[in-house]
Design a binder for these strands. Structure first.
Lengths: 336, 336
DNA sequence: TTGTAGGCGTTATCAC
DNA sequence: GTGATAACGCCTACAA
């Protein structure tokens, strides 16, 4: 039903290769026929078949994304940045959402391989050994965005945040405000991002001559409920904290909500600092002091890395690309 | 480099059609060779080329999404629901983000057509006449999700919210709480969703015997800033409102923020109701009374509609599918 | 039960 | 400049 290059050829009384040349703006063709055929194509409502083209070209102009969830505002911004810069480079995006389920991630990767994407960007939590095996034999560049990889290997590259630095910034800020008993609410169990932020927290405390009290480090989930459940545990401590650094903004927001229910005034009774700077951080009450992750930049870098890597494959170069970006602190009401 | 069906055929000493049959689990093949070839395929790391398959089958098992932005929490949830149910049906998603720029939307649609998606779901604001011309000659079903279409046509179907009903619910709630001067902060200029919600607002007021004061209807943008800018205009009124119904939650959240700066206590001085029930509605302070849009259901319905329509094409049936879903009111702190 | 041949819509390499 | 012809990797009659 759809009109192909051959249909145009027939209508124009030329061969299909002439049509192909005319449409790809080839130099070796007379200006007259080129114009004639291009007009004809437009009139007939021709749409080039990207499948056929990709089949012969060996490129799909498509990048796959494996994300855990796009309802997470942080991921939503990153994915949006990825789509935008991919678009400016003439690429489109196949989006898969895994819910952090390993089976789902494996299925996603297999599907992306079948659809012959030119590269993959992964924004999932951890890359298990099973999973990475699938990534390894993919044959196209895979860029991990803020995703920890257990060990490096071929075809895996990364764009990541300097989490330790961010954790340091947040904690140092609280120390400067005079706090000594500072808690940390972690992310999901085993999250390496969380561990790194915690390490920055530890370093800042040490530098300030404050010893780290393990009781002040309580587990969260990376979601709001994690912060909500963490607060009562902190309040029940023999010596409760006067400030708390949260793994991310969602955790902090959950904690703020719990604080309200417990009649804890923020920041007077408890100072709070988050991480990410999601759009809502400035809309909650009190507005949230947080560490800004350069989300747009990270998305952009990931795409550019994928494109650079696909271009270099032939050059047999093997640049272990692992870009690390740094965040900044934005001070709002929640930290006093 | 990647292993094809022919490579397996060579390794197995059979023809490539036998391999094709074995891998597609065809009945007309001996169980022995089938098993042998399937094992071989696994060992050789075979990945079927979806491009080649789609080329011959005429289907890509792919659905295109045209969204304005996924940083909008409402859209993020809908898109996520679309991806999830598409996955369960064996489909994947090409995501495009338009920023509501017409050029971008047209480019997106052309690209989706080239990539031969089996259907398209549009979650954009309005479908202009230029744009819809592109959609019309697409040749595959296009489902508009909460997107107004200026006129119906072939190949365009819809899943939409009963906005008037929602607006009615919100306003009636405020009326019941004893309010008489109730404002409405609209969405982006010309948004038909906003107009419908406003119509529900009008109906509820009329039923309560309250005359509609045009001064109480102020324009917003659909984003937080819109609500932020709307509040001062309402306060400057000779007779300010005691309650306000906002086009959506983001608008309401912006308005809440402005209220704080103006020392207006919510809900004591001003009751506020939103629309959407985005996840954050329950985390802002005060938490937001709002009209729940069944986002997951809408995403699911849109996918199922696309699939049903692609299946029916051959049946030459022409079911004008326009599903309308209804929301419910969830009462929280912001309305007293 | 298996192999052969043709075609899906392109691009690319030859000749003419 | 233009036209055959052969790929790309797969599915599917039709033949054997």
């Amino acid at each position: 039903m759809t009109v192909s290059i051959k249909d145009i050829a027939k209508a124009a009384g030329v061969s299909h290769s002439t049509v192909s040349r005319a449409l790809s703006d080839s130099p070796l063709i007379s200006a007259a026929t080129k114009a004639r055929i291009q007009r004809l194509a437009r009139e007939m409502g021709y749409s080039p078949d990207a499948l056929a083209r990709s089949l012969v070209m060996g490129r799909t102009q498509t990048i796959g994304i494996v994300a855990t969830a796009i309802t997470d505002p942080f991921i939503a911004e990153v994915v949006q940045a990825i789509e935008q810069t991919a678009y400016t480079h003439g690429y489109s995006i196949i989006l898969t959402i895994s819910n952090a389920e390993p089976d789902r991630e494996i299925a996603a990767v297999e599907m992306l391989r079948s659809k012959r994407v030119d590269g993959v960007i992964v924004t999932s939590s951890r890359i298990g050994s099973l999973y990475r095996e699938h990534l390894a034999r993919f044959g196209v560049p895979v860029v991990l965005l803020n995703s920890h990889r257990e060990q490096s290997g071929p075809y895996t590259f990364s764009v990541s945040m300097d989490n330790q630095h961010g954790g340091y910034l947040a904690t140092e800020h609280l120390v400067r405000r005079g706090h000594r008993r500072i808690a940390y609410v972690s992310g999901a169990a085993g999250s390496s991002d969380s561990l790194a932020r915690q390490e920055g927290y530890r370093r800042a405390l040490e530098e300030a001559g404050v010893s780290v009290d393990p009781a002040l480090i309580v587990p969260g989930t990376g979601r709001a409920e994690g912060g909500e459940r963490a607060l009562p545990r902190l309040l029940d401590l023999a010596e409760p904290p006067t400030a708390v650094f949260c793994y991310n903004d969602m955790t902090a927001i959950g904690l703020l909500r719990a604080a309200r229910q417990h009649n804890i005034a923020v920041p007077r009774d408890l100072a709070v600092v988050g991480f990410d700077d999601i759009p809502f951080a400035s809309y909650v009450r009190p507005s949230l002091t947080t560490v800004v992750q350069p989300k747009k930049e990270m998305g952009r870098l990931a795409v550019e890395m994928v494109l650079a890597l696909t271009a270099e494959e032939k050059n047999e170069g093997d640049p272990i690309s692992n870009v690390v970006v740094r965040g900044t602190l934005v001070v709002r009401e929640s930290s006093g």
